[in-house]
Amino acid sequence: MSAIVPWETDPIRPDEPKPLRITVDGTSIEGLQGQSIAGVLLAHGITEWRTTTAGRRRGVFCGIGVCFDCIATVNGESDVRLCLRRANDGDTVATQDDTREAQ
């Protein structure tokens, strides 16, 4: 499981981070200002959120915006690479499921 280094014990001595909240598929999740949305999820141990056409689960793979595995719908816009997108307080994230039929 993925995890974030607790800021209190991180040897690089970060300042106390400022919190933010986003919702993911309707569930409110706390993150830190400056995290990418993928970073928020990974910090909570969530490593998978997309479902492929074949029904397989995906999360971050390349971490730098090249593989597009981590895409999700953010504030109504589809296909946003979560590893590149900074989280903003109040962001609404909807995971993408390619097995779903047309609405």
Partner: peptide, 16 residues
Amino acid sequence: RPRRGMVLVTARMAQR
């Protein structure tokens, strides 16, 4: 003679 044509491809989506 050649006549150039360009096509765009979108990301995958639920059929609309």
